[in-house]
Write a protein that binds this DNA or RNA. Sequence first.
DNA 1: GATACCATTTTGGGATACCAAACTGGTATC
DNA 2: GATACCAGTTTGGTATCCCAAAATGGTATC
Lengths: 221, 221
Amino acid sequence: MSQMQSVERQLREMILALEIGPGERLTERWIEGRFGASRTPVRAALLRLETEGLVGRDGRGWTVSPINLAELEQIAVYREAVEVAALRLTCMHAERGAIDVIEAMLDSCDENTPREEWHRVGMDFHIELARLSGNEFLFRAVRDAMTRLSRARWLEVRDETALGRAWLEHRAILAAARLGQADEAARLLSAHITGSRGRLVTSLANDRRGLRARGFAVVAA
Amino acid sequence: MSQMQSVERQLREMILALEIGPGERLTERWIEGRFGASRTPVRAALLRLETEGLVGRDGRGWTVSPINLAELEQIAVYREAVEVAALRLTCMHAERGAIDVIEAMLDSCDENTPREEWHRVGMDFHIELARLSGNEFLFRAVRDAMTRLSRARWLEVRDETALGRAWLEHRAILAAARLGQADEAARLLSAHITGSRGRLVTSLANDRRGLRARGFAVVAA
DNA sequence: GATACCATTTTGGGATACCAAACTGGTATC
DNA sequence: GATACCAGTTTGGTATCCCAAAATGGTATC
């Protein structure tokens, strides 16, 4: 694996895992030293992560993108558009086996599963479901949106019941898709996304003080 | 303006204007010499253009992305999803004046307007309409999709009647949006996109031999 | 004539040197 | 004490150099 891709991957993981906090400043030289690479691959990584919205320019320098509540709401709207479109396509030519694989993902989580795994599977459920549409651009759009949302979802204060409800909704969506009921599946997915958007933004807004205390830049809606 | 942005902009324009043909190989050294910049800004430009889908990796080197008919169809589906979603948002909070500005864009084209101007305005109509949604991500998605489609639209063999029909459809969409009739506007836009997608792909498929003769790589659907 | 093989060139990935602009910290001035 | 100012440092933008891998082209062999 080239260093270029390696730096990009490692830096992305650090940002998504909040090891580098939202709003933190980045210098190319620090990254260079941190990953033992020279500036060429570092720059390539920053340029790529910029298009993913994970880092941004701050005048002359770079910063890890802050959590922006207004932006999160816009992403959720965007996500709903592309994810519902993908799901409708999937309903048209749903393959039994493919949907079973997604369902198995959900089954893999139980009460003994660590929280971070629930988090990851919850994201992958939506991404893999979009992949089934067969439309590369809808798939990429969903994956990109989920990536942009993932740090915020990680910060969200979620109770157990919320996770349980999400899983029930996921299963209901799959059931409708399996039967090819596009309108019903779309309705369920829209409700699921709208609901989780509301809870996400509310939770972050309520905990904004706490998040700032942890050094995380959180921009209001 | 920094050279980084300058090289990126100039190279993008050359590719979109087909001055560098789809499928053509690019070497960093050639670009370097062509624009009088060093490899650092050249590589930054290539990395950015790669995310826009205008250039791609070909093993170790770079190529201008070929026209891919299957991909064009997928982009059109993606575009329909995001553009319709944006239009629905616009209908919710449509400002009179903003829509008038878009209409003025259409008015600026008459029988004396050069073909390339019609082409540009036809694209900008959709992009600016999406901007009115107020959702940055839907807007970017539409702009990105239109960029990816633009080379193909430029190659399309269009008769005068097709352009006239497109303008009529554009005006009908604006009329519905002005009245806040979201469903009607969405229906018209969907039909407009679906229709132009069909004509675009048909035209390119029919002229594929001629396009290849001009040195343009055109991948079948 | 086709093919296998080798020397040469080209090319992208990476490292490093240099520069101008921005930032920093301290100092002098009021 | 506040502020204007200046020297030193940091930092991103750019140019250049090096290298290994891949492409190229010619040649010897069958």
